[in-house]
Amino acid sequence: MAVNETLATVSNDLVYSAMAIYAGAFVAFSAELAFGARSSARPALHTEAAATASGAAVRTLSQATTQAPPKQSRFGRIGVALTVLAFALHLGAVVTRGLSVQRVPWGNMYEFSLTAGLAVTGVWLVLLWRGRDVRSLGLFVVGPVLLTLGLAVTVLYADAAELIPALKSTWLVIHVSAAVLCAGVFSVGATASLLYLMQSRWERTGGGGRLATLLPTSASLDRTAYRTNAFAFPLWTFAVVAGAIWAENAWGRYWGWDPKETWAFITWVVYACYLHARATAGWKGRRAAWIALAGFGCFLFNYFGVNIFLTGLHSYNGL
């Protein structure tokens, strides 16, 4: 089966175009941070804090969290528009890459990074579209995506090619697409957790400047983090199970403690810790958020660390 070189070139051009537009979005979000209109998040926050402290008017709290999202600044809107455009180009890049080799475009680290980046933007846009209070996370979503694409085109780049036999399986489609989607959801969850840690600190100390006023309240960030991670956890469970079924199909055992499998397991257990912590007295809030970040660290290590430093059966051709 021949590689369609024209489409492969189109894909590469689209990647660079998407990167340029993402960079524009990044600048717009940064400008929002630097000169944007102040949102009304801060005052609401103070009534909330006061309400909880007094212990009487819990009702105010629930009302405060349901009030309309803060008004968008012009820069913010430009940022979102550019991100949508970049996403479309990015999607085009992934699709043409897949068409050029007539298979799913996740056979090596370059393709995996490309698709995972798409998933990150996609998850953020879906949350935004569904009315979640995540718009001001834009800078922290587009930034990492841009970084991932930069890494993909420089360090990880691999020419379009057919797959090695070990990867020719329906389970590649199922297992890796679930893992790619997880990468997207976990990334957004980790971003929310990180910002939650910062914001909840600033709410106590009054620091954080413009960024603190731009970001959602810590309660809202915590909720976003929980929802995304709680969505990703069963998906990750599924990805690991699909991987195990594939392993059984290819190597005769569903679990062999290969480094990749080991880190998938560790990631799974740490995220289970996170969900547990959120139901355990004394572990909600900041401690749980740290656990979520640790889980994401394990997830990232499983991708970069294991592929680059450790040897195992999981082959990614092209690196």
């Binding site: 403690w257 810790c273 547990h276 139901a279 355990t280 007295a281 004394g282 572990w283 394990c298």
Partner: peptide, 28 residues
């Protein structure tokens, strides 16, 4: 208790880490 469950889950993750870094006889 929930707290112990959380602690043991932590411990399990931690216990699996050396096997994810050092080579293992069964695999390598």
């Amino acid at each position: 208790s929930m707290r112990t469950a959380l602690f043991l889950l932590f411990l399990l993750a931690l216990a699996a880490v050396p096997g994810g870094i050092l080579p293992q006889r069964g695999q390598n």
